[in-house]
Design a protein around this nucleic acid. Structure first.
Length: 295
DNA sequence: AGTCGAGCCTGCTGGC
DNA sequence: TGCCAGCAGGCTCGAC
């Protein structure tokens, strides 16, 4: 279930296992995921030292001493399992998706073996995930990275930035916020949540929040809420990671805190609102909102 | 140019 | 109980 907070959580978890380790072996159990693996994928990774991990939008970037970088996208159902003795201790660490793990291993597509003996397994039933290799110098020119917008947790996201991007935009707010070329890493859930907290309808045209002179104060509030919600979710996911212990995957706790997502028919939680959460479909995807308090 | 729908895959859920 | 439509947290491409 990877949106930005989930990818951030996985990246942090993997960083503790992978950083400083050398990749001993890469086993590919099929030709590719969403795209074919690049030429010589396994061979180019084997023997490399992992110098660090970072995240850009919903992409995980694994930096190697060979000035190569392994780019990973979890798609909809990608997850990692770490088996063996690692820096995290002995046991198993999951990033577990909503869908139960199959257990059969039928969807284990890539297995990395590290120099400390740990095995890092990439599982992805739907195979919407991506793995690619790029040079560090291609970080801003790579096909998948070059058009990506600002990170929502960084300083570059501001109400004036949004005002510029939304100016004369006729697409609904929902679609504009999902647009990775505007904001990097926002997904279907957190867009619904941020719009609800801000009291803005997902159907409203993005351009309607831009006036000629002053920046609409609702854009300030939207930016604040996007940040707060993402940070709250990262905290909830992070606490899950710290709880890793046994062989059971532990899910992030933020799901319990959704105000609108997947709550169709339930009463709006905003005090004094009294509305009922609705589900509509926008550009093929579910939007959840309260028609009473989101205008 | 901007916007929208279809498609990529598999698995789970809910309604009949 | 069994079947089948509908749905899923992402992204790209093509058509309008």
């Amino acid at each position: 279930m990877p949106e930005l907070p989930e990818v951030e959580t996985v990246t942090r978890g993997l960083a503790r296992v992978l950083t400083g380790r050398r990749i001993r072996r890469v086993e590919l159990r099929r030709d590719g995921l969403r795209f074919p693996f690049p030429e010589g994928f396994a061979a180019r990774l084997e023997g490399s030292l992992i110098t660090g991990l970072s995240r850009r939008a919903k992409y995980i970037l694994v930096n190697l001493d060979s000035s190569l970088c392994l780019l990973i996208h979890l798609g909809m159902t990608g997850r990692f399992t770490v088996l063996g003795d690692t820096a995290l201790g002995h046991g198993e660490f999951y990033y577990k998706s909503e869908t139960a793990k199959t257990g059969s291993g039928a969807h284990d597509h890539v297995v990395f073996t590290l120099d400390d003996g740990a095995r890092v397994i990439y599982t992805d039933p739907r195979r919407f995930g991506i793995m690619d290799l790029l040079l560090e110098s291609e970080m801003t020119t790579h096909k998948l990275l070059k058009d990506i917008g600002v990170e929502p947790l960084g300083n570059a996201l501001s109400s004036s930035y949004l005002a510029k991007k939304f100016h004369r935009k006729s697409a609904p707010l929902k679609a504009a916020l999902l647009d990775q070329q505007i904001i990097a890493g926002l997904g279907n859930i957190y867009v619904s949540e941020a719009l609800h907290r801000t009291g803005l309808s997902p159907k409203r045209k993005a351009g309607s929040l831009v006036r000629r002179k002053a920046v609409d104060p609702r854009l300030d509030e939207l930016v604040r809420n996007v940040r707060n919600i993402l940070n709250e979710a990262i905290l909830a996911g992070g606490s899950t990671l710290q709880d890793f212990a046994g062989s059971d995957g532990v899910e992030g706790t933020y799901q319990q805190r959704f105000a609108v997502y997947d709550r169709e028919g339930e009463p709006c939680q905003k005090s004094g609102c009294g509305g009922t959460i609705r589900r509509i479909v926008q550009s093929g995807r579910s939007s959840f909102y309260c028609p009473t308090c989101q205008k």
